[in-house]
Amino acid sequence: MDAISHVAGRAIPFGRKNVDTDVVIPAHWLKTITREGLGKGAFEAVKKEPGNVFTDPEYAGAPILIAGDNFGCGSSREHAAWALLDMGVSCVIAPSFSDIFSGNAFKNGILTVALPQEAIDRLMEVAREHPIDVDLETQSVTTPFQDRWTFEIDAFRKHCLLEGLDEIGLTMAQGDAISVYEAKAKADLPFLAKTPATAA
């Protein structure tokens, strides 16, 4: 996982509320067996709307996406995070996110920043012509016009994102504790700790 400490550049002023993961990446893209290439399918239906921000060359390759309330609701598909990464987005700013989406985003090294609606309104305005700057270290979002907002982030998540730490590697480092648990479970809960060697 790539370390992430600072995301600066253009932001896609999408702003829509209750964007579910079906909108981010429609179900028929779920048939892939790799994480790559999903950017093509990202926001497929929105891209067909005239004047949409996703096909506007102004925002091509922008690393930040600005959305409305409850971003990433609906199906738990992680493909939504992969699709965003594949289109070059590494930070999403919205008033709120679905729990599952923010978890999936974090696991894939995407920073989710929750800011109040007033801040989103202002960012939408700025984003049309100017870059935005998101700094994880200081937990702040700034614009070239001296706007500045701070955001909250779980300390553990911040640490992992800054260091580019992979959760699986971290847990594997606790292998001994897992083995201790397994030994105890074998004695106390043998019926859960194993499955019959041969299914009769």
Binding site: I168, M172, G175
Partner: peptide, 18 residues
């Protein structure tokens, strides 16, 4: 409960979840 693909990988590798 249901999990995402990164968690599927986490469980396969460690048999645990955070």
């Amino acid at each position: 409960f249901g999990i995402g693909t990164s968690e599927v990988e986490h469980v396969l590798a460690t048999q645990t979840l955070l």
